[in-house]
Computed example of a mutant assay.
Amino acid sequence: MEKKNNRLSAALGITFVWFTTQFGGGFASGAQLKSYFINYGIWCLITCIIAQAINAFYNGYTVYYCKKHNTYNYRDFCDGIYGKFAPVFSNLYEIIYIVVLLVVPAVAYATGGSTLSTLLGIPYMLCTLIIGVFIFVVSIYGTAIVRKTATALSVMIVVGLLVVFIPNILAQWDSVRSNIGALSAKPAPIGPALFSMFLYATSQSTPPVAILSQHASVLEDKKDSAFTFVIGFLVNSAMIFISVLGLLAIVDLPEYAESSLPILVLVQNGVGGSILTPIISILIILGSVSTAVNMVSAGTIRVCSALDKDFDPDGKPTKKVVIVTLILCVVGFGVAQFGLLPLVNKGYGLLGYMAIPVIIIPFLIHFLLRKRIDP
């Protein structure tokens, strides 16, 4: 019984790390869902789930390989999985991850800071500083704390999403059903919908390589990776489907077409707007911060592991950990102050394209040939 409990606990911990990695400000605001799925018509009800299946496969294989070979930082993992091509592909991934480390924390500061400023009415720079301090403190205390924080944040985010979406889906069910019928009647070529879905999945495949590799050690056996990512697929699929379904209540409204925060349009046109608006604001902040914590922590572990072969990611924060984490947080803070959010958002699409030759194709080849090259 204890072994089963440990297995489930490890699976849920990794699931919530994946969830908080995916659930950033773009997801929380509904902007990502609108851009990658809903804009392509009725297929959004299926493509949002297929994207989770793609990521579950890649995430699961990453964790499986890391546990099998005891490689718990992403450089060791990349050197192993790329084999003789590691001098090229491992360094290409390093370049991609440097871009990610600039993009994700900057998004957290910019979206979280502006949302907190609107919610509390205090200066934007002070808000970004508050968020930066939180990210810094959590990130320096190792992977175990990150998992616990991810679990706590995930529970709050999941509960918050359900509180927002379920009442609005029920109250606006006639609109949801009507808009689903209208979308079904409109021409919706499947090709563009599948390509957008694929690009979303590839852009989401880059951070987990670095993040989930450090958490694979909590599994008792490499075979537990399959169980872990079945759980992860179910949780992430349920949340993204509910979110997409909720937004379908408002796709016919003029405000939806013009809004970069469609979830606020849903709340303002649904039930409990005065109560749910601050809840949505908090969700956007939590989503941004949780993703940034995962990324900064992974970056710290990568750098500190390179500097010290005996580095323990779950140990007490050392001077090196504090300095490296502080540098990463300050860089993200600095980028956000330049107002680069629109450029940063375009960066996610670029990351999606870059991931295809560096992650998507090589990992698939390795999986198909694993019995021959990695018995």
Rank of each mutant, 00 (worst) to 15 (best):
Ser9Tyr: 09
Ser9Pro: 02
Ala10Met: 02
Ala11Pro: 13
Leu12Trp: 07
Gly13Leu: 12
Ile14Pro: 00
Thr15Arg: 07
Phe16Val: 02
Val17Ile: 15
Trp18Ser: 14
Phe19Pro: 03
Phe19Thr: 04
Thr21Trp: 07
Gln22Thr: 04
Gln22Glu: 09
Gln22His: 08
Phe23Val: 14
Phe23Trp: 08
Gly24Ala: 04
Gly26Phe: 11
Gly26Pro: 11
Gly26Asp: 12
Ala28His: 11
Ala31Val: 03
Gln32Cys: 04
Gln32Ile: 08
Gln32Leu: 12
Ser35Gly: 08
Phe37Val: 05
Phe37Ala: 11
Ile38Met: 14
Ile38Trp: 12
Tyr40Ala: 06
Tyr40Leu: 08
Tyr40His: 15
Gly41Asp: 06
Ile42Met: 13
Trp43Thr: 05
Trp43Ser: 06
Trp43Glu: 04
Cys48Asn: 12
Cys48Phe: 06
Ile49Asp: 12
Ile49Ala: 13
Ala51Met: 04
Ala51Ser: 14
Gln52Ser: 11
Ala53Trp: 01
Asn55Lys: 00
Asn55Gly: 00
Asn55Met: 01
Ala56Ile: 14
Phe57Ile: 09
Phe57Glu: 07
Tyr58Ile: 03
Tyr58Ser: 01
Asn59Glu: 13
Asn59Phe: 07
Gly60Thr: 01
Tyr61Thr: 09
Thr62Tyr: 08
Val63Gln: 06
Tyr64Asp: 12
Tyr65Val: 07
Cys66Pro: 02
Lys67His: 14
Lys68Asn: 13
His69Ile: 03
His69Gln: 11
Asn70Lys: 15
Thr71Asn: 11
Tyr72Arg: 05
Asn73Glu: 15
Asn73Gly: 10
Asn73Trp: 12
Cys78Phe: 02
Gly80Ile: 05
Ile81Arg: 01
Tyr82Cys: 13
Gly83Val: 03
Gly83Glu: 04
Pro87His: 07
Pro87Trp: 07
Val88Leu: 15
Val88Asp: 02
Phe89Val: 07
Phe89Ile: 10
Ser90Cys: 10
Ser90Asn: 11
Asn91Ala: 05
Tyr93Cys: 11
Ile98Gly: 10
Leu102Arg: 04
Leu102Gly: 15
Val103Ala: 15
Val103Leu: 14
Ala106Val: 07
Thr111Leu: 14
Gly112Pro: 01
Gly112Lys: 02
Gly112Thr: 02
Gly113Tyr: 10
Ser114Ala: 12
Thr115Asp: 00
Leu116Ala: 06
Ser117Asn: 04
Thr118Arg: 08
Leu119Phe: 13
Leu120Gln: 00
Gly121Leu: 03
Gly121Asn: 02
Ile122Phe: 10
Ile122Lys: 05
Pro123Ile: 11
Pro123Arg: 10
Pro123Asn: 15
Tyr124Leu: 05
Met125His: 10
Cys127Phe: 09
Cys127Glu: 07
Leu129Asn: 06
